[in-house]
C-alpha cells in the first residue's frame, strides 16, 4: 500500500529545489575556486590556476583579520546573551504582575528584520543627532565614534546583537527551566544544598541539552551575521566580519575576481562545517564513556 516510490515522488520537489539552490552553489565554488576567472579581463573564461587562489588566501590579512573579528564578536555576544538570557528566564519562572506583557515586549526584537535592527541602532549611534554619542559626550566626557574606533564599533555590534538575540536565549531557557521536574530540586534543598549547589548539580545538568542547542544555533547565526552589522557600520573598521568580507569581495559590482571569491567562499564553508560538526558531536553526546 505504501510504495516507497510514491514517497520519493512526494519528496522530490523539495529535493530538487534544495539540490539546485543549496548543493549546486557548493559544487560551483568547489570547482571555480581552482580557476582564475576574471569577468572583466581581456578574455572572459576560466583558466586553471591550481592552488593559486588558496596560496593568495592564506596570506590575505584582511580575510584572516575578519575571521578573528568574527570569533571575537561571536564569543562576546553569545556569552553575554546566555548569562543575561538565563537570568531573565529564571525571573520569568516566578509569578509577578504584568509578566505576559513584559514577555511579549521582550520577544519583539526577535522578529524584526536584521536590516531594520541595523537601522535602529545606526540611528542611535549616528554622530550629529544620535542620543548615544551625545549622552556619552555630555555626561561622561567620552568620545564615541564608531567610524573611527574599531573597538567601539565591535562593542556596538555586540550590544546590538545582544539586544536582538537575548530574547531567543530567554525563551529557550525558560522552556528548559519549566521542563525540570520539581522533586530533585526539592530533594537537594532538603539535603542542605545552597542555591549555587542546586544550580550547579541539579538545574544545569537538566538544562544541558537545551543550553547546548541554543548555543549551537546562536553560534551558527552569529558567525554569518551580515545585514545588521553592515547597516550599522557600513563595513567600517572593527566590523569587517567574514560574512561581510566575502560579500564585499564576491558582490558582482565590487570585484570581478570570481575565482578568488569562490576560494574564499569555500574556505568559509569549510570553517563553518568543521565548527558545526564539532558542536553537533558535543550536543549529540557521542562522547565515549557517557551513558546514552
Amino acid at each position: 500500500m505504501r510504495n516507497p516510490r510514491t514517497g520519493w515522488l512526494l519528496l522530490s520537489p523539495t529535493l530538487i529545489i534544495l539540490i539546485i539552490f543549496g548543493f549546486m552553489p557548493f559544487l560551483y565554488v568547489l570547482v571555480v575556486g581552482f580557476f582564475d576567472w576574471n569577468v572583466f579581463a581581456a578574455e572572459d573564461g576560466m583558466r586553471f590556476n591550481g592552488l593559486g587562489n588558496y596560496r593568495r588566501l592564506v596570506f590575505d590579512d584582511l580575510f584572516l583579520h575578519s575571521v578573528g573579528l568574527t570569533i571575537r564578536f561571536a564569543v562576546f555576544a553569545i556569552v553575554s546573551e546566555v548569562v543575561l538570557g538565563f537570568l531573565l528566564a529564571q525571573m520569568l519562572t516566578r509569578k509577578f504582575p504584568g509578566k505576559s506583557l513584559f514577555r511579549i515586549i521582550h520577544t519583539f526584537p526577535l522578529m524584526i528584520a536584521p536590516i531594520a535592527v541595523g537601522a535602529i541602532w545606526r540611528l542611535l549611534v549616528i554622530p550629529g543627532f544620535g542620543p548615544v554619542p551625545f549622552v556619552l559626550d555630555r555626561w561622561f566626557d567620552f568620545t564615541y565614534q564608531i567610524g573611527t574606533y574599531p573597538d567601539q564599533a565591535l562593542a556596538t555590534s555586540v550590544i546590538m546583537d545582544v539586544w536582538h538575540w537575548t530574547p531567543f536565549v530567554t525563551l529557550t531557557m525558560l522552556a528548559g527551566l519549566s521542563a525540570i521536574p520539581r522533586e530533585p530540586v526539592e530533594q537537594a534543598k532538603v539535603d542542605g544544598a545552597n542555591r549555587l549547589q542546586v544550580f550547579w548539580y541539579v538545574t544545569l545538568p537538566f538544562l544541558r541539552p537545551v543550553l547546548l542547542t541554543t548555543v549551537f544555533i546562536r553560534i551558527m547565526d552569529a558567525i554569518r551575521t551580515v545585514d545588521e552589522v553592515w547597516m550599522l557600520a557600513g563595513g567600517g573598521p572593527g566590523t569587517r566580519f567574514t560574512g561581510i568580507y566575502i560579500w564585499r569581495v564576491t558582490s558582482p559590482g565590487a570585484s570581478a575576481d570570481w575565482g578568488y571569491g569562490s576560494s574564499i567562499s569555500l574556505i568559509t564553508l569549510y570553517l563553518t562545517i568543521v565548527l558545526c560538526w564539532l558542536l553537533f558531536i558535543a550536543i549529540s553526546g557521542r562522547r565515549k564513556g557517557e551513558v546514552e
Binding site: 592564506v58 574556505i267 569549510y270 562545517i273 560538526w277 562522547r287 565515549k288
Partner: peptide, 26 residues
C-alpha cells in the same frame, strides 16, 4: 574521543587533509 562510523572518519580525514594543505601553504 567519540563514537564514529565510517562516514564520520572519512569526513574527519577530508577535514584534516584540507587543514594541513592550508597550513602548509601558509
Amino acid at each position: 574521543p567519540f563514537h564514529t562510523n565510517a562516514f564520520d572518519r572519512v569526513f574527519i580525514g577530508v577535514v584534516i587533509l584540507i587543514g594541513i594543505h592550508l597550513l602548509w601553504l601558509r
